[in-house]
Design a protein around this nucleic acid. Structure first.
Length: 211
DNA sequence: CTCCCGATAT
DNA sequence: ATATCAGGAG
């Protein structure tokens, strides 16, 4: 496990490498962000953006989504994996938002998690990105980076989230999600980690460091 | 733990 | 050919 001063250095370097980190999923408002994140499960952001580009031009509210309908939605997202269940979830989720929340996205994690297709990770992303809260969403990339480096080891995503919550210094909390995910996607990759270009290589506890 | 399930990288 | 991709539900 990394020490406190090492963690400070860790994030200071990621911040220096990427001062204004942003996610790579496209959206136009909290609702479309929620939909985009639901669609992004086990899919690449590039693939999701390709499908949502046309979709969000026409559909950016729960009302319009219900007007489009499940069949219409599937037509838009059929290139995304797991599209059948995702389409069902988005339609049902939109019905609930419209009926119980005046068509708006609740700013509450427990409520968000009651929506179909929305788990803890998706809820945390929406709270962080759409509403600016310092929640830490642990996806596949962050789980891998946290464990590999020794930043915040844990056997499951909940434990990693708790460890990050404890160990990430306050000034870095708001954007740590983006720094970690981008680092995981482009440098600390699942298959072939690019340790040669890693800015925290000297701190990292990964045993099989590549050249 | 299994199922969902297309596109992309390796 | 196969592992992986901004996971969640039964």
């Amino acid at each position: 496990m990394l020490k406190r001063d090492q963690i400070e250095t860790f994030f200071a370097r990621l911040q220096a490498a990427n001062p204004a980190p942003k996610g790579e999923l496209n959206y136009v408002n909290p609702y479309t962000l929620l939909v985009a994140v639901v669609l992004s499960a086990q899919a690449t952001d590039v693939g999701v953006n390709k499908a949502t580009e046309k979709l969000f031009q026409r559909v950016d509210t729960p009302q319009k989504m219900l007007k489009l309908g499940e069949a219409g939605l599937k037509e838009h997202i059929k290139t995304i994996g797991l599209f059948n269940t995702k389409a069902k979830n988005v339609i049902r989720l939109s019905e609930i938002l419209l009926r119980d929340f005046k068509g708006e996205v609740p700013q509450d994690r427990d409520i968000l998690q009651t929506l179909p297709g929305v788990g803890r990770k998706t809820a945390n992303v929406v709270l962080n990105i759409a509403f600016g809260l310092p929640t830490i969403a642990v996806d596949t990339h962050i789980f891998r980076v946290a464990n590999r480096t020794g930043l915040a080891p844990g056997k499951d995503v909940l434990k990693v989230e708790a460890a990050l919550e404890k160990r990430v210094p306050e000034p870095f909390k708001l954007h740590c999600h983006h720094w970690l995910i981008l680092h995981g996607r482009y440098v600390c990759k699942a298959r072939k980690p690019d340790c040669g270009r890693c800015v925290v290589r000297d701190l990292c506890q990964f045993k099989e460091k590549n050249v």
